[in-house]
Design a protein around this nucleic acid. Structure first.
Lengths: 354, 354
DNA sequence: GAAGAAGACTAAAACAGTTAAGTGAACCCA
DNA sequence: TGGGTTCACTTAACTGTTTTAGTCTTCTTC
């Protein structure tokens, strides 16, 4: 910048004004000359220094459990795009589900003077976040929130999602609908909501929630658990449909059904959760609930920007995104003998266009 | 920092030395006192300023095509971990396969004074990268490289990967092995290598490369293309095995086989590429080639660190990572009638332990 | 023709650190 | 006792920007 100033025969202040496009502080001729010189010398402003002076780094810290899985990268994707559009960049970290790593990243991000944070907290992490919040860090939680603090959050409405899924099964004539959930101790946030949606849909339809149709997921691979508990359900109950809180559980159930010779969806209808890619390629493809991760990321950025720029945001503190039920082959029965082709096609088309 | 200095009754220089652990410049008593005061005042060093002064930001720019897909996030994951271990952070960007976005990110990263870059270039992007390289940016390419420039790269050895895959099919008795590849114009880098490995394995085994068994993938969903071309192969040729350059193509082929009533692996053996998660959940599970993305990311970071710290790196400029063939059910025939159980189990175990 | 206003630009402080050079005081030794 | 070292710490310059408060011109206007 000093070089540009010298070469253009002006002061650094003038260069600063010129490259930042501050109008009315110099003649057009001067501005053009400065910009031409900057271009010629390939002047690259030092954004670090700019950040120091303006106390605004245009960098947002993003921390999610993992870059793998399908869900969080979709959120990260939309966050990155939304930030880029606004001239921001993201430094991205994984928590690796470790409080130690989370805490370390948090202080690092603070020391890097990021303008804000978009993070997925775990229910027991309030104490990790408190110091950085007290220092005034603008933050939006995604996919979860901490009850103890007034930090905005954006997450999918899992109660609604599972409600829609189970309602869909009921509408297709099922009454014996099984599900699985985590043990009470680890049943937090979204997972609890998914179970509540299941109960609500049944209750509203006048169907009793039957403990015999509910299985508790233990530790281990979600597919294996789905497989094991699915076999159990198929052998020991009169289940005709099953709603799973994860597509991976659903994949296991589908395998179990195949093993005991039950056809999907005719003998057993299956609905998963999370719109995992694998579900598109099963036979039949898996009906599932899309949590709209892109929407979550986008809204989180909008909210954070409002906080940073001090514009009021009328949305509720904890915003719930409406999920979408993706009806695919695993939950819609093939045409019964008694129904004529045309009517059936209509019904299926209607259902598939949900 | 000024506050800490004042409160501890020393100069800012002493505080700087103390918090940076520079030994031998002060008494232990002074150091302890300064650190205690810093702790008490909750002093958070400003890493931006530090970066300005030391010309080292401890931030690396990472740019990959997308956070979605399975492959790149795995690389990103390992990059993030490796950087974190070394006290670095990553600002992550997606190129969105757009030269405009790539160029924009590149200048932004330069202006943010990142210490280095780990990026996936596209073959036509040499001109985008040249300016930033001429400015001295340390860079490592992953998953591809630009021939015109001497920038180190780390990528999977796709020729070897497909060679192993096809060799595996040959060892299992197949002679009529089909494949698919992209049209010549877009057949760059890894995709070309995968086709070359196919040819080499056949040639080495004394099998002629037969154009009748090769299909060209057109635009559109990889699964749909695999399905369409798979049907074509199954109906019009005497193919007994097929090697696909992507697991998604393989999923389409598996669907095609099911539709024409051919069993996998008995009537048709299928091997994919890329170890996509979906391949684990098909029936039978899909044999595939794992490109070792974690290893790629890790090595890329090691290489970049060597460049940044000026330590010589004896590895070749363009490092190829050895991929791994994951033998699963889609490529190993079930026991023929004539073979006794024990011998068969042994053979399968042996093959599966590859 | 002088006062005042407006316009174009500059000087210099500030930001929060690092670091080379400098200053005393204590110590050592001939 | 004087001179040289070493040690502990400080001074001050520097980094590359922004921003406030000027300083000159030049232009109005009476």
């Amino acid at each position: 910048m000093r070089d540009v100033a010298a070469a253009a025969g002006v002061s650094v202040a003038t260069v600063s004004h010129a490259v930042n496009g501050r109008a009315g502080l110099m003649t057009d001729a001067t501005r053009d000359r400065v910009l031409a010189v900057a271009e010629r010398l390939n002047y690259q402003p030092n954004l670090l220094m700019k950040a120091v002076r303006t106390r605004q780094s245009n960098v947002i810290g993003v921390m999610i459990p993992s870059f793998q899985s399908t869900f969080f990268p979709q959120i990260a994707d939309s966050i990155e795009r939304a930030l880029r559009e606004r001239g921001y960049h993201a430094v991205m970290c994984q928590t690796q589900n470790s409080n130690g790593v989370t805490a370390e990243n948090l202080t690092m991000l603070g020391q890097r003077r990021v303008d804000g944070l978009i993070v997925t907290p775990k229910f027991d992490q309030a104490s990790l976040y408190r110091p950085i919040f007290e220092a005034g860090m603008k933050t939006v939680f995604v996919d979860a929130y901490l009850q103890e603090m007034d930090i905005p959050s954006v997450q999918s409405d899992d109660t609604l999602g599972s409600y829609l899924a189970v309602q869909h099964l009921i509408e297709n004539g099922h009454r014996r609908i099984a599900t699985m959930h985590l043990p009470e101790a680890s049943l937090c946030g979204g997972m609890r909501a998914r179970f509540e949606g299941y109960c609500r849909a049944l209750t509203e339809a006048g169907i009793a929630v039957d403990d015999k149709l509910i299985r508790i997921i233990e530790a281990g691979s979600a597919v294996d658990q789905g497989h094991k508990l699915g076999l159990d359900l198929l052998k020991n109950t009169d289940v005709t449909a099953v709603f799973l809180p994860s597509d991976f559980n659903a994949l296991g159930v589908m395998r179990a059904a195949r093993e005991v010779g039950q056809a999907i969806p005719d003998d057993l209808a299956v609905v998963g959760y999370n719109n995992q890619e694998a579900g598109q390629y099963t036979t039949p493809p898996l009906t599932t609930v899309d949590q709209k991760p892109q929407r979550i990321g986008q809204l989180a950025v909008e909210r954070l920007m409002a906080m940073i720029h001090g514009t009021p945001d009328p949305r509720p503190l904890h915003k719930l995104i409406e999920p979408e039920l993706l009806v695919r082959g695993s939950s819609i029965r093939r045409k019964p003998e008694s129904v004529n082709d045309h009517a059936w096609d209509e019904a299926v088309s209607a259902a598939l266009s949900v």
